[in-house]
Computed example of a mutant assay.
Amino acid sequence: MDMVHKRLKQYSGAAVLTATTVGCLVWAQPRANLTTTALALVLAVTISAIAWGSGPALVAALLSVFCFNYFFIPPIRTFTIADPQNWIAFSVFLATAVAVGQLSSRARNRAEEAEARRIEIERLYKQLTDAFEKASEAETFRRSEQLKTALLDAVTHDLRTPLTSIKASVTALLAGTGNDGSADSLSAEGRMELLDVINEESDRLNHFVEEMMTLAQLEGGQLLLRRSEMPAQDIINIAVDRAATPLRQRTITLNIEDKLPPLVVDGASISGVIYELLVNAEKYSVPDSEIYINAYQVSGNQVEIAIANEGVTLPASVRERVFEKFYRGARQGEKQGFGLGLSIARGVVEAHGGRIRMDAGRHGVGTSVRFTVPCAPEGTRTSELLRP
């Protein structure tokens, strides 16, 4: 019912518009000639086609034809056409009015179809975007679950292993001690070995906690760097001293470029990076092999530090993944790391504005991890370099 009412209004509008145009032209007679009259009526037909479509335009065209003949072609107020030229004018007007009405209506329909297609495309695009968002959310959730699984597996392993060793050592010490606190079955050497195990595994647990805290700071963008000028030799010595226990079966070869400018870094963080790389170099090398530490200036404001071993040369595909969180290589020893050390090292180096990468080692043997850090260019005050 609403559609019928709407169509009636459209046809009525076309009729009213045509009648109004005719009335104005009749009032303007005889100042308006046949050409002006024909153009005005064609305009009314065109407006009807654009505004209401082909049906109302056809009605407007037929009304215009009859009115054009009745009111404007001599003899006026009759449907008779006496002059042959007026027949030609009438025929041309009839064809033009109908053609213009249909063409205008067709153009309107095409515009409406184009608008409908645009709306449909927008709707489909929105659906596609929603689908991608849902898929992305699902993928994010899946990766989150994978991360939780990896984290749970790593935490379970890395906490259980040292705790088991500590528990076993303490149990052995207690079992080897008499009720009065005196030594029973354990020798002094045996007790020292068990205490060494407790000390080493406690250090491992402490290192695990430090890694987790550093990772949380890096992920949250809250790692506080206290930069200052510090010689590369001092930073490297701190890391080597800290790694003395795991490196006791390795030979360290240190090569620092002469007159190397001081580094402008957080000394504790960078020594932690070097420590992690030294421990990693020890893990993937055999006893009595050498570990090389090189430091040299690569540009006016950057120093590169490289740690290389003589172990197995890792394939390029593995070298690209070693800096990912929770990635663990197949090491030669029995203890696996948490899989965070190199990821944290990369985060610390990049926080200093440097870059880190892993290459093949000396003469293609073993691996070499290189990273760059800022140094103090000659003639530049530290305050200028540290200015935000």
Results as ranks from 00 to 15, higher is better:
Leu63Phe: 06
Ala28Phe: 01
Tyr275Leu: 06
Met230Gly: 02
Glu290Ala: 12
Asn69Met: 09
Leu41Pro: 02
Thr36Cys: 00
Val197Gln: 05
Glu201His: 11
Glu120Met: 07
Ala38Arg: 02
Thr214Val: 02
Val209Ala: 01
Ile344Thr: 04
Ala281Lys: 02
Val303Arg: 03
Leu186Ile: 02
Gly23Tyr: 10
Ile236Tyr: 00
Gly354Lys: 03
Ile270Leu: 08
Val373His: 14
Glu310Lys: 05
Ile88Val: 14
Ala61Thr: 02
Trp87Ile: 06
Phe132Asp: 07
Gly366Asp: 00
Glu384Ser: 07
Asp203Met: 06
Ala97Leu: 05
Met192Cys: 12
Ala175Ile: 07
Asn301Phe: 12
Ala116Arg: 08
Phe79Ala: 01
Ala360Lys: 01
His207Thr: 14
Val22Asp: 02
Asn255Thr: 06
Leu385Glu: 09
Arg142Phe: 13
Met213Lys: 04
Ala376Asn: 06
Gly178Cys: 02
Val312Ala: 01
Leu263Cys: 14
Val170Arg: 08
Phe338Arg: 00
Val4Lys: 14
Ser165Cys: 03
Leu385Pro: 10
Ala308Met: 05
Ile256Met: 05
Ile252Thr: 10
Thr96Phe: 11
Asn86Leu: 15
Leu278Pro: 10
Asn109Ile: 14
Asn206Phe: 04
Phe72Trp: 00
Ala168Ser: 13
Asp153Val: 04
Asn309Lys: 10
Gly339Gln: 03
Phe66Ala: 14
Ala295Arg: 09
Leu174Asp: 13
Thr313Asn: 05
Gly353Gln: 05
Leu314Ala: 08
Ser48Gln: 10
Asp83Ala: 10
Arg7Pro: 02
Ala295Lys: 04
Ile47Glu: 04
Ala82Asn: 15
Leu247Gly: 06
Leu103Ile: 13
Arg204Gln: 14
Ser343Phe: 15
Pro374Asp: 09
Ile238Lys: 10
Ser169Thr: 02
Thr245His: 11
Asp130Gln: 08
Asn86Gln: 15
Asp196Ser: 14
Ile50Met: 14
Gly23Gln: 13
Leu195Val: 12
